[in-house]
C-alpha cells in the first residue's frame, strides 16, 4: 500500500456508526482506487456514508444525484447551446468562445479540482439502464474529452467515487466488475443500540430496549409489505420522546404507528391484530431464537 493511501484510511466518524466490513470495503476501495458500490435497504444510510467518509478523510465532497432523466454526459459537462443561440441572436455574452458555454458537471468539477475529492453518485439505478455503461471509461481512466473544443480533462487527483443503488435496476456486469461492492445489512440490535445512541443520547435504556423489541418484532412479521427502516425508527423515537411516553405505555401498544408503517394494508393489519387482543412481545426472548443466541 502506498504511503499516500495509508494516509487516507477511513475509520468512521462520530455521527455515523459503521460496521467493520463496511470500513474494510471503504479502505479497500481507497487502496485499489476503485469506485465503491453501496447497496442496501432504503433507510440504512447509504447516502450518509459518503458524507461521513468525506468528513472522516477530511476531503471535500461533490454529489451527483441521479434522476430518471439523467444522462451520463451531464456529469461531465453540458454544452449550453440554447444560451449560445440566444446570445448570438441578441449579441450578448462571449459568443465567439465556445468554452464559456461549456458548464462542467459534478464529475468534471471533481476532475479539474486542485485537491482530492469524494464523489458521490447517488442512486445510480434511477437513471436509464445504459447509464452506468456510459460512465465506465471516465471512472476507469479518470479523463474525458470535451467534444466541442477537443480539450481533454484529466483528473489531477483521483477522486474516491462512492456509488449508491437502491436496486431498482440491474447494473451491467462490466460496471460491477470495476467496483468494490458492499451491501449494508440491516443493523442487528447491538449495532442499532449504538446508532440510536448517536441520535438520541441519554435515552433511558429500559425504554430503548422496549422500543427495539417492538421494532424488531414488527420487522419480523412476514406479511409486512414495507418493513420499517432505521430512519423510521429514529423518527419514531423522536415522536415517543416528544410525547413523553413511558415504558409501561409501550408494553401492550405501539403508539404513533404511522411513523413506522407507511402502507395502509400494514396499518390495517396491525390495528386488527390489536383489536383481536394479540399479544405484543415484552422481552427479547419473545422474539424467537434469532435474538437469543
Amino acid at each position: 500500500m502506498s504511503d499516500e493511501n495509508d494516509f487516507y484510511r477511513f475509520t468512521g466518524t462520530k455521527g455515523y456508526i459503521v460496521s467493520r466490513p463496511l470500513v474494510e470495503a471503504v479502505n479497500c476501495a481507497i487502496a485499489l482506487e476503485r469506485p465503491l458500490l453501496i447497496k442496501g435497504e432504503p433507510g440504512t444510510g447509504k447516502t450518509l456514508l459518503a458524507l461521513n467518509v468525506a468528513e472522516g478523510l477530511g476531503l471535500p465532497m461533490e454529489s451527483w444525484h441521479i434522476k430518471s432523466t439523467s444522462k451520463a454526459a451531464e456529469g461531465l459537462y453540458v454544452y449550453d447551446t440554447l444560451q449560445r443561440l440566444n446570445d448570438a441572436r441578441f449579441g450578448e455574452g462571449n459568443v465567439g468562445d465556445i468554452r464559456s458555454y461549456i458548464k462542467l458537471g459534478p464529475m468534471g468539477r471533481v476532475f479539474t479540482a486542485e485537491n482530492r475529492h469524494v464523489l458521490l453518485i447517488d442512486e445510480v439505478d434511477k437513471a436509464d439502464l445504459e447509464f452506468p455503461n456510459d460512465i465506465l471509461r471516465e471512472l476507469d481512466e479518470m479523463r474525458f474529452t470535451v467534444m466541442e473544443t477537443g480539450d481533454e480533462v484529466v483528473a489531477r487527483e483521483r477522486p474516491l467515487v462512492i456509488i449508491t443503488s437502491n436496486n431498482e435496476k440491474e447494473l451491467p456486469d462490466a460496471f460491477l466488475r470495476r467496483c468494490v461492492f458492499h451491501f449494508i445489512e440491516f443493523p442487528e440490535p447491538d449495532l442499532m443500540n449504538q446508532i440510536v445512541d448517536v441520535h438520541h443520547p441519554n435515552l433511558d435504556s429500559k425504554l430503548l430496549d422496549q422500543v427495539l423489541i417492538k421494532f424488531y418484532w414488527l420487522r419480523g412479521q412476514p406479511d409486512l409489505r414495507k418493513k420499517p427502516s432505521t430512519s423510521e425508527l429514529i423518527d419514531w423515537i423522536s415522536a415517543l420522546l416528544r410525547s413523553g411516553i413511558t415504558q409501561d405505555q409501550l408494553d401492550a401498544h405501539i403508539p404513533f404507528l404511522g411513523s413506522l408503517l407507511k402502507n395502509e394494508q400494514d396499518t390495517a393489519a396491525m390495528s386488527e391484530f390489536e383489536e383481536r387482543g394479540g399479544r405484543m412481545p415484552n422481552s427479547w426472548s419473545d422474539l424467537g431464537p434469532r435474538y437469543n443466541q
Binding site: 500500500m1 470495503a25 485499489l32 460491477l176
Partner: peptide, 28 residues
C-alpha cells in the same frame, strides 16, 4: 489478489472474509 498482496486483511480471517466478499461478489 492486489488487496491480499498489500496485506489489507491483517492476517485476520474476518477481514479476509469481508474483503473477499467486497471484491469478488457484486450482488447481494
Amino acid at each position: 489478489m492486489t488487496v491480499l498482496e498489500r496485506g489489507m486483511h491483517d492476517t485476520n480471517l474476518l477481514s479476509f472474509y469481508s474483503l473477499a466478499k467486497a471484491t469478488l461478489v457484486k450482488s447481494e
